[in-house]
Amino acid sequence: MAYKLTVNGEPHTVDVPEGTPLLWVIRDVIGLHGTKYGCGMALCGCCTVHINGEATRSCTTAIQNAAGKHVTTLEGLSADGTHPVQLAWEEIDVPQCGYCQAGQIMSASALLAKNPHPTDADIDAAMDGNICRCGTYLRIRKAIHRASEIAAKQSAKAPAAAAHS
């Protein structure tokens, strides 16, 4: 069956059976590999994407529930890796193996979009669904605070652009 959806601003029509998880449409049909498979049961958060701005586990989102919606994957977070969360992750050098970080970054960026200055408790609540098997949690907390600062500086410099995003 054909479904229409927008991924990272680009319209796509995909012909897959009803019930196919969005994760596998993104990875194998559309061919974007930033979004990762870890558990298939929305337990680990590796597959987190934004659907209409909401952090969502794509491994348990059936394609029909993403149809007609705007999906953002890590590849679409910024054109050049300069989203404040990406910059902060790079500055703090968060990853060890790096496999879970796509999901971590997507959860963190969804948090900051709604709550530009999160407390540690806000971070804990927003990030608890994302497992890091290597245990980079202390750096993740630090990097989210840092991303908040970077975003504040960016919007101070370019208020119009910030309002647009």
């Binding site: 990762k36 992750w89 790079e90 050098d93 970054i105």
Partner: peptide
């Protein structure tokens, strides 16, 4: 301290891991 050489690829979702190979 020297940075992870794959950091830019990791934070921007470039194919890197075994599972990403096509």
């Amino acid at each position: 301290t020297q940075a992870n050489p794959d950091i830019k690829k990791i934070v921007s979702g470039k194919p890197l891991f075994g599972i990403d190979h096509t």
